[in-house]
Computed example of a mutant assay.
Amino acid sequence: MSILNRPSDGLFNILVVFARCLAQHGSMDRGKLIKVCAPVSAVDSQERAKQTLNNWIQLGLLNDKEGKISIDRSLSSEIKKTFEHGHLALACRQRVLAVENNQRFWEAEDNGSSDFCRAASWMLAQNVFDVEVVGHKAVEEIEVQQLREFSAFTNDTRWAGFKAWASFLGFGWIGRYPNKNTFVIDPTTAVSESLAEVFGKSKELAQEQFFRTLADVLPVIDGGVYRSQVEEKIDRASWKEPKSSEISTSLSRALSRLHEREEIQLENRADAIKRTLLGRNNRPLRNVSHIIWKGGKK
């Protein structure tokens, strides 16, 4: 079981159909669910649907109790009721990043969702202004320079799988510049959808607490446990590591966009410990001492 090898691990668009069906109709026999969501009249083979279903049962999003498939009980009632795109992506992201699905973090096979978390951690560590790639060949050239002990993407199939899942899970998107089908590293959506959990009942956090908590929720971003493990294996001769007082260009991009969208307010207060957001050519964008969430309780 893994995530990125879509021919054997399944597709997110099939998962969306399963989730919406179960949210609307409740638990359903496995055979009936497959027939309803992947009828033989509409698909050449039901094998991909079966693979997707099995994978997400193992990852804990769905349950299989004596052949009855249901949405996992641990998901909030709101998510189970609606399963809108954003809610489903949030639920999937939580399962993909879960510790229990990353126990075999460095294994090539049967690694749960570790293949995605390794790849996402590495991509988010890159300078987002230098790395905007289309095909596997371009990203492989960077891998060869930076990675000696593991490969983020062993082939084009897994690269395509990463682009699809990373876009769905909120860690990037597909652009048209400088080339069509360019993958743009951008965790804005993932960060935005994590703010409620990060802030809790607060509306304001000092930067130390904000970044520490965000890394707990999204362990593939700066300071996260998965990110730290991957960064340890990157060749420093080919990769510029941000200083402890700096925020990576990927997370800086997300926070800057959220600030401009007025979801958060980045403040630089005198006599407070600060961290620096980085822009193009690693130039400082702004210093941040406190983060205010516009959705926090007054």
Rank of each mutant, 00 (worst) to 15 (best):
80 K>W: 05
48 R>D: 14
51 Q>Y: 12
35 K>S: 12
23 A>Y: 04
30 R>H: 11
47 E>G: 01
97 L>Q: 02
37 C>P: 01
72 D>I: 01
93 R>C: 05
54 N>T: 04
88 L>S: 06
30 R>E: 15
63 N>W: 03
48 R>P: 07
49 A>I: 06
43 V>I: 14
82 T>G: 02
89 A>Y: 08
77 S>N: 07
66 E>N: 15
84 E>N: 11
61 L>Y: 10
68 K>C: 03
86 G>S: 12
62 L>F: 13
85 H>W: 15
74 S>I: 08
24 Q>R: 15
57 I>L: 07
80 K>N: 12
94 Q>M: 08
75 L>R: 09
76 S>T: 13
39 P>D: 09
75 L>H: 11
51 Q>P: 00
96 V>Y: 05
40 V>M: 14
38 A>T: 00
93 R>P: 05
82 T>Q: 09
30 R>I: 02
84 E>T: 13
60 G>F: 06
54 N>H: 07
86 G>M: 07
49 A>E: 05
42 A>R: 13
39 P>R: 07
84 E>P: 00
67 G>L: 13
23 A>S: 15
84 E>S: 15
75 L>E: 15
96 V>M: 06
87 H>M: 10
34 I>D: 04
62 L>H: 08
42 A>T: 13
97 L>R: 03
45 S>N: 14
32 K>R: 14
39 P>G: 06
96 V>H: 03
52 T>H: 05
42 A>I: 13
54 N>E: 12
64 D>P: 13
44 D>Y: 03
44 D>S: 11
85 H>M: 12
34 I>V: 13
40 V>Y: 07
79 I>K: 02
37 C>F: 00
79 I>Q: 02
40 V>I: 14
45 S>W: 09
33 L>G: 05
82 T>S: 12
29 D>S: 10
85 H>K: 15
24 Q>C: 07
85 H>P: 00
70 S>R: 06
50 K>Y: 06
72 D>Y: 04
27 S>W: 06
84 E>W: 01
57 I>F: 03
49 A>P: 11
74 S>T: 13
29 D>M: 08
93 R>H: 07
62 L>Q: 10
70 S>T: 07
29 D>A: 14
84 E>I: 04
69 I>T: 06
63 N>M: 10
94 Q>S: 10
76 S>K: 05
56 W>I: 00
44 D>N: 08
52 T>K: 04
83 F>V: 13
40 V>P: 00
78 E>L: 13
67 G>D: 13
83 F>G: 00
33 L>I: 06
75 L>Y: 03
87 H>G: 15
85 H>C: 02
39 P>H: 05
44 D>L: 10
53 L>S: 09
23 A>F: 03
79 I>G: 00
47 E>C: 00
